[in-house]
């Protein structure tokens, strides 16, 4: 029988003593997911701005498309990306398969629909006069868009945090395009699956605890951010 109590005790020991294998995996998870969110925000925010502030034919279809992609199974996306990045695939020449770049790109693509959907709703909830107000005070189109984005600060935070949550907790993409190579492309979720399969439960449990702590912390930040006005004030400091 599996020694759960003993496993948890050893896991806590690994966490407390700062086990390099454990913290290497934690670092990679945070780093890959963090970069993935930055990438997703870079291309997702302008898309959300267009979807929420501009009127064009087919807008509803585009919004529905992104909404429906939120629930895409990560293994399916992982498989699609595997086929694209594999040697015979359309982007095989880039040699991205089984590299950190593939995981970052894959996670960025995975979270883009979440980021766009939450951000679009948040921007749509902003008073539509804000755009005109900024313009009549002298703002250019892009400065006025930033003013709108600042008004949607809670939504911006929420979209980024929800995306990070999804990225750090997903398994399919990281496993299929990252290859779960120890010390190079293994992240919290893929490492848990590997160590569980190998019977190294103490490390698997330790990783599971850390993953849960990260997820709880992220949610705590969301709750605190909604309450902590100072955080919002910092965000809203106007550009010089």
């Amino acid at each position: 029988m599996v020694d759960i109590v003993g496993g948890i005790a050893k896991a806590l020991q690994l966490i407390v003593t700062g086990d390099p294998t454990l913290y290497g995996i934690v670092y990679r998870s945070l780093f890959f997911s963090g970069i993935a969110i930055i990438l997703a925000a870079l291309w997702g925010t302008p898309i959300a701005m267009v979807l929420s502030l501009k009127n064009f034919r087919g807008k509803t279809i585009v919004k529905t498309f992104f909404n429906s992609l939120i629930g895409i199974p990560t293994v399916v996306l992982g498989l699609v990306l595997y086929l694209i990045f594999s040697r015979g695939g359309p982007l095989g020449v880039l040699g991205l398969l089984y590299t950190p770049g593939a995981i970052i790109l894959g996670e960025a693509i995975l979270v883009t629909p979440i980021l766009i959907s939450i951000l679009t709703s948040a921007i749509e909830a902003v008073d539509p006069e804000i755009m005109s107000l900024a313009k009549t005070l002298g703002a250019s189109e892009s400065q006025a868009s930033i003013a709108v984005l600042k008004e949607a600060v809670s939504g911006v935070l929420l979209s980024n945090i929800a995306s990070f949550n999804r990225a750090i907790a997903e398994l399919g993409v990281a496993l299929l395009v990252g290859g779960n190579i120890a010390g190079l492309t293994d992240v919290l979720t893929t490492a848990i699956s590997r160590y569980t399969a190998r019977g190294e439960l103490d490390l698997a449990i330790a990783l599971g605890i850390v993953l849960m702590i990260i997820v709880f912390l992220i949610n705590a930040v969301v709750i605190m951010a909604r309450k902590a006005r100072w955080l919002l004030t910092i965000w809203r400091m106007p550009q010089q």
Partner: peptide, 24 residues
Amino acid sequence: TLVFQKTTLFSTSVYNNVAYGLKI
């Protein structure tokens, strides 16, 4: 510049509201 009929303010301090156009 136009002052709208409906009072529209940025969600920030009075200073930041009034200074917005000057900063631009």
